[in-house]
Amino acid sequence: MTLSATFLGTSGAVPTVERNPSALHLRREGDAFLFDAGEGTQRQMMRYGTGFDVDAVFLTHVHGDHVLGLPGLVQTWDFNDRDRPLDVYTPRGTGDQIRDLVTAVGATPSFRLDVHEVAAGETVLDREAYGIETFRTEHRTRSVGYALVEDDRKGRFDRERAEELGVPVGPKFSKLHAGTPVELDDGTVVEPEQVVGDPRPGRTVVYTGDTRPIDAVATAAAGADLLVHDATFADDDAERARQTAHSTAGEAGRLAREAGVERLALTHISSRYGGNVGALKADAAAEHDGETLLAHDGLTIDVPYR
């Protein structure tokens, strides 16, 4: 089951030649989602081949570098005769701003566009085998983060053990794997736990948007396979990070370590660093025991099962 994240924009508030404003495309098999939509997101989608078949858009907060790409993207969907409804999720109290933004040039899309206000601690999308949940972040405005969390998978089926117990190859295998006991011809009952291992964890991808490194983020990221975290500043600009309610790379790394994150991807990189971003990765890697990546536009990360 494919799960991959493509970075469409990794800059801070001011874009650079190499970095577009914030946007992350997440694909889980046939489902596709967009987290934030900074200016130029639709062109980045074309450039990096994500496709336009987005099921829903999740906005972390209503600052320009996270939402100004939405009107153009909606208009392009309209030009391309989209007929599927689009759900847009935005922090509570910001729904009217998003509705006004989408229709700012006087056009209403021909497809249904529903704006949903969300708060931290909600499951905002509930689908078979996974959901998308919100968590609290700390920025200078109403904000939330999002986590795609898969359900646990069934344990592995021990075919060899089943055959040893006399279970014939066929439908009884499927029943046992689904958790239903089966009766053999001699009256023996075989229980699922005799041939099925412990449930295996699904995958978790966490996207913070802009935030300070707070406990609520660490809780949401606990054991995550991929954490995409604000790393606007290097550690020697920690005071500036506090003033602007962002995180340093080192703070992101420390949070990832404390949360037991498998992989950390740093994003929302301030333009003040230009091409000299090595210090940010070094700051984070010094804190985080797992893999640390400095995200760049066009980077795609595949998230495997552990």
Rank of each mutant, 00 (worst) to 15 (best):
F111Q: 01
A147Y: 08
D114L: 08
D83K: 10
L125H: 01
G131M: 01
G93H: 06
A119K: 05
D96E: 13
R127T: 08
R84E: 03
G106Q: 12
A147R: 04
D114M: 08
D96T: 14
G121Y: 12
R84C: 03
Q75R: 11
N80A: 14
F79G: 09
L86D: 00
E128T: 15
T76F: 15
Q75H: 11
F79M: 11
T108R: 10
T94C: 13
D81I: 11
V74C: 04
A107E: 15
G106M: 06
E117H: 08
E122Q: 07
Y146S: 07
Y89F: 07
A147D: 04
F111L: 04
T94I: 10
D81W: 09
A147Q: 04
G145W: 01
T108Q: 13
V88Y: 00
G145M: 08
G145R: 05
T137E: 12
V105S: 14
G131N: 03
D126H: 06
G106F: 10
R84I: 02
E138P: 03
R140P: 07
V118K: 00
L101R: 10
E138D: 12
T90Q: 07
E122H: 05
H139F: 07
V118W: 01
L125M: 09
A120D: 10
T137Q: 08
A120F: 09
V149Q: 04
V144T: 05
V115G: 05
Y146K: 01
V124R: 00
Y130A: 06
T134V: 15
T94S: 15
Y146A: 03
W77R: 04
V118C: 02
A107Y: 11
R142A: 12
E128C: 14
V115Q: 08
Y130E: 00
F79Y: 15
V124P: 00
G93I: 07
V102L: 12
R127F: 08
E133C: 11
L86C: 03
A107V: 13
R140K: 14
D126T: 07
A104F: 11
D114A: 14
Y89K: 02
G145Q: 06
G106E: 09
R112K: 15
P91M: 12
E128N: 14
R127C: 07
D83R: 14
E138A: 10
V149I: 10
Y89R: 02
F135V: 05
